[in-house]
Design a protein around this nucleic acid. Structure first.
Lengths: 200, 200
DNA sequence: GTCTATACAGCGATAGAC
DNA sequence: GTCTATCGCTGTATAGAC
């Protein structure tokens, strides 16, 4: 593990537990056992550390992308969601303290919104596919299906903020992947609903 | 308007737009046109200002409580939600920057969680009532109804964080009150669904 | 109540020796 | 690469005059 990697790992750890605004370059340096001056040799400013972490996050998300082969089976969807949630959880300060980070580095806000817009497109694709396969109830209006997509995005973007309010679970990522997936159930035809409930 | 009120009003304004962590007592004092020393005469520390704002918020929420007469009609529920959302929006830094506030003042975290637990009890009450009135579809499992309550809480607690990710609307509180209410629709019997859709 | 002045701590960041 | 020392700045909080 290089010095730069050590810095990033410890910074991520501290940002997640104590918050970006209260963790200083001094804290990071001290808890690795290195001088603050040396840290600034590797990363000239605190913002550069944050940016480096965000790059790391983006890379991990891209590597975890599962839908390259256009396989949108429900097990695939729920698995992909779990992957993404797991990564988001490791970099959770970007989402729990998003406002603080965004004020410091507006370009991170921009990229994050772009990323979730991409996810939204994917979800609409999946919904349309499912719709054509006839798994939705006929009584569900067009409007309500679009609403389903919004709810989905809502859940994906906000589960980390909501975490504190709902009852805690051991495996947070797993829990919320299933939670988010459960949104679909009442929209499905009865026989589909049962099949999906088995997966959850 | 007393000096203390002026300070609170301006502090709230600045906290909402620039974030608690970056707004200083100097900023607040300067933008009212008073000295920083004087501000500290009225409120000894920044945390006391935050606490005073939270007290104000709690008072407003209590005064807006509509369910004292146990009227749980859907128009009443949606109206109450709009009221609450409107208040939350005015004090939005407590929810958008909740982590920052909670790190500074853990007692605010405690009270906030208690408040939403109360809301959760209310919602379960309402759901049970509606269930007994037979408005839910028979196919919906017991589990799924409990899930509905969780989703509801999820929406109520996180709409301000999610705001940025979804498409913006002019009247945010109104928009999200309806958004949250729409969660119910696919759980309802067909004739009820239509009646509810009219309200939205 | 309101002001000015000031003490003090902690921050990000740099300089220079090794 | 790594260290120590230090600068400049900003934020919180207090003291004392009016």
């Amino acid at each position: 593990m290089t010095t730069k990697q050590k810095i990033l790992a410890k910074a991520l750890d501290l940002f997640n537990t104590d918050g970006v605004e209260s963790v200083t370059t001094r804290h990071i340096a001290k808890s690795i056992g290195m001088s603050q001056g040396n840290l600034h040799y590797h990363y000239p400013t605190k913002n550069v550390v944050v940016k480096a972490l965000f790059e790391q996050f983006l890379t991990e998300v891209q590597n975890a992308e599962r839908f390259k082969d256009n396989n949108f089976a429900k097990e695939q969807v729920i698995g992909s969601m779990k992957d993404n949630f797991e990564i988001m959880f490791r970099y959770r300060f970007f989402f729990k303290d998003n406002e603080v980070v965004w004020r410091r580095l507006p370009e991170i806000k921009k990229t994050t919104l772009e990323l979730f817009n991409l996810k939204k497109t994917q979800i609409l694709q999946i919904i349309t596919l499912y719709k054509n396969q006839g798994i939705f109830r006929e009584q569900i209006s067009e409007n309500q299906v679009l609403f389903l997509a919004e709810q989905f995005i809502f859940s994906i973007t906000s589960w980390l903020s909501a975490k504190e309010y709902l009852d805690q679970e051991s495996d947070i990522s797993e829990y919320y992947a299933r939670f988010t997936f459960r949104i679909w159930l009442p929209y499905l035809k009865e026989e589909e609903m049962r099949k999906w409930e088995e997966v959850l």
